[in-house]
């Protein structure tokens, strides 16, 4: 096993995923398999190879700094579970 349960717990926390105990057990096993599989990459000789940034070597385009979108807050908020007075509601953060 290339990953242990503590590592998987740490990864799940970084990814903000709550897993059941059963999911943890399976994840340790399957993620280890995947990590072992991608470890093949270490055999490739990449000395001096520039990592790919874009498949077509294109540069990131810039657009003029002008307002192009209109305010559609109410429509966007129709997909939210809990809103009030134009705000998104979440559990209390400050005591």
């Amino acid at each position: 096993m290339s990953l242990d349960k503590d590592q998987v717990r740490h990864i799940a926390m970084l990814a903000r995923l709550k897993l059941t105990d059963e999911e943890y057990a399976i994840s340790v096993q399957k993620l280890s398999k995947i990590v072992d599989f991608v470890d093949q990459l270490s055999a490739a000789d990449t000395t001096g190879v520039v990592p790919m940034a874009h498949p077509l070597d294109a540069a990131q385009r810039l657009r003029p700094d002008v307002v192009t979108e209109s305010n559609e807050r109410d429509r966007y908020q129709e997909n939210a579970a809990s809103v009030s007075a134009g705000l998104y509601l979440v559990p209390k953060v400050l005591e």
Binding site: I11, L19, L31
Partner: peptide
Amino acid sequence: CRSRGEGFGDEVKRRIMTGTY
């Protein structure tokens, strides 16, 4: 954590965790 844990399926969670790692 619970919205994501309950809302995503197994393979998606596996890929998110692989990527996070």
